[in-house]
Design a protein around this nucleic acid. Structure first.
Lengths: 339, 339
DNA sequence: TTGTAAGCGTTATCAC
DNA sequence: GTGATAACGCTTACAA
């Protein structure tokens, strides 16, 4: 039924080792032998067993992508497809496959460290920061196991991330250029590094322009609709109402739009709204939202490249990579009426 | 450095086979031996090599999910994450891992049939209909290779899909209940089975109610914004303007909403709008859209279950499985003012 | 209950 | 150039 290297060797009247060399296009095999053996392989419809090859070569030709489905990471959830596409485009061309593993932090039997790493199911790992605890990084480092973090993390030897600080700067600069000056920042969890970086970018530009970023204008909360709405109302009805808001997510921004509508505040004339992320709503709101687009396919590509470098070159030097976001101006901040 | 079954055997003073039996919790090993060996495995930090196990057992404990990133399948693109979650939840508990493979139809070197199936990298396959050509199905059938199609396909032995006809019926019935009667259907590619099934469901309910589904009210086109807008205008300005529209996607529906706004047509009073899919816009439009929710996590679960049955029980009988959609009524069709 | 030995399908190291 | 032969790390009869 199934044909192995032994069958081919027999049919071709050569040794298994010769067939193996043909398989790997060894230079020490004569052209005619190669042709003859290949011919036979084709005729007998032979494909080498990846498992056997893996055993002999001590490698799985698999890389793993870890996710934690129990935590609803908006980010992964939305951009999963394109990140995977990016990773695939790199590793696929190097004949690696992508294994997706769901990491429940309190997994009943067997941590992924055993399931994937120690059991050698994968030769390398890409993981989101929500999975990579500092403890885990240390362990992977100790094992000298190649991995890349999706998101900047100090403990990770190697990571790729978007330049969130630059993103904060870009949105803020844009608001100032449009004539806004009282900027508020909405929607991040207190202490969340993502929030902190973005806010820092915002603060830098304001300071540079000699403008204050009032504490009262920094509102923490879930990055979703209801919170955005609540926060916006609080701000607009407060002591020092801002003339513009930067939102951590499309959903936050949507909530802000709702609040403005309910309070009869004109967007963009009386209130400018800008948001991180281009997906999924920014194009479809009224008015459409000025947003910061993150090229997630590229993120996947970069992660894949870095990882493959580590695996193939056994490249040990740790490094971080920041990708530039892209500003997409839309009506929600067109105070200067460029329409 | 790396510890194998031989090391454990030596350390425990038993044979490799004994260790192997302990590993698989064979009943023919004494409790004390098991305890002792396990103790040693733990102490030496041993994890069996999945590749070696795979070779010996002749199975990869991997299942593959095929996608074609070159075709921008809105469906997969949006629901990828939850479908994967569903599949994972089933196969993960059976100690299988998920391999994602990007299938370029004109792949330079090596069809996925070789890359994954013949090389035994995966024990089973799940694939979207856009990948599974009839030819491919025949080939997989011939190889007796276990696979499940995501989407109803005649040639596939086994598939799971949403009951799109029922979906068409549900949306149409809802419109009639709300007092609409002149229903239009917008947004599918001519000949697309998905479109045909949904339209059929719609037609059934209308016929049952003694209402016609006019040809002029069936508009083909890309399932996106611009087309939806164009189609809606065409209909509303035409000879027999409908009082309600069923859209193939959220984006189509968004376009319809725009058209209504531009033409000053009141939604839902003068025009009811209902759409397939609950994601990503239906909750966020003005007014929010009545939609048909498809439980994609469940789709993944079902696909996973069917596949594992096939693999484990060598279950040969082909079967299809239809999942029921869920109607989510919202303002866009609340003509009877239930608000 | 445990041990022996023969696979599983490749690759890799030598001889020839 | 080609061919034996020993890994690779585990499972599985069959013996003991």
């Amino acid at each position: 039924m199934k044909v192995t290297i032994t069958d081919i060797a027999a049919a071709a009247g050569v040794a298994k080792s010769t067939v193996s060399k043909v398989l790997n296009d060894s230079p020490k095999i004569s052209q005619e032998t190669k042709l003859r053996v290949r011919e036979i392989m084709k005729r007998m419809n032979y494909t080498p067993s990846s498992i056997a090859t893996g055993l002999a070569r001590q490698s799985s030709s698999n890389i793993g992508l870890l996710i934690d489905m129990s935590k609803s990471s908006e980010f992964l959830n939305q951009f999963f497809y394109s990140i995977i596409g990016g990773i695939e485009s790199i590793i696929g061309s190097l004949k690696y496959e992508l294994t997706i593993a769901n990491v429940q932090h309190n997994y009943p039997e067997g941590h992924f460290l055993h399931r994937l790493v120690m059991s050698k199911r994968v030769d390398g790992l890409i993981a989101n920061t929500s999975v990579l605890t500092e403890e885990l990084c240390m362990e992977l480092n100790r094992l000298q196991f190649p991995y890349i973090s999706l998101g900047e993390v100090a403990a990770a030897g190697c990571w790729v991330d978007f330049d969130n600080e630059a993103g904060g700067r870009m949105l803020t600069r844009h608001l100032l250029e449009e004539g806004y000056s009282a900027v508020a920042f909405i929607g991040g969890q207190e202490g969340d590094p993502l929030f902190i970086r973005r806010l820092n970018g915002c603060r830098q530009v304001l300071q540079q322009a000699g403008l204050p970023l009032l504490k009262e204008r920094i509102i923490h909360g879930e990055a979703e609709e209801a919170e955005g709405c609540r926060a916006a109302k609080e701000l607009l009805l407060g002591e020092a109402p801002p003339d513009s808001m930067i939102c951590m997510s499309n959903f936050t921004a949507f909530g802000v739009l709702q609040a403005a509508k309910e309070l009869g505040v004109q967007v963009p004339a009386e209130l400018g709204i800008a948001t991180f992320d281009e997906y999924p709503l920014s194009r479809y709101t009224t008015p459409p939202l000025t947003s910061l687009n993150l090229d997630t396919f590229h993120l996947g590509v970069s992660a894949g490249q870095l990882l493959m470098e580590r695996i193939i070159d056994r490249n040990e030097r740790g490094q971080g990579l920041l990708l530039e976001p892209e500003l997409i101006p839309r009506e929600s901040t067109f105070r200067t009426k460029k329409l």
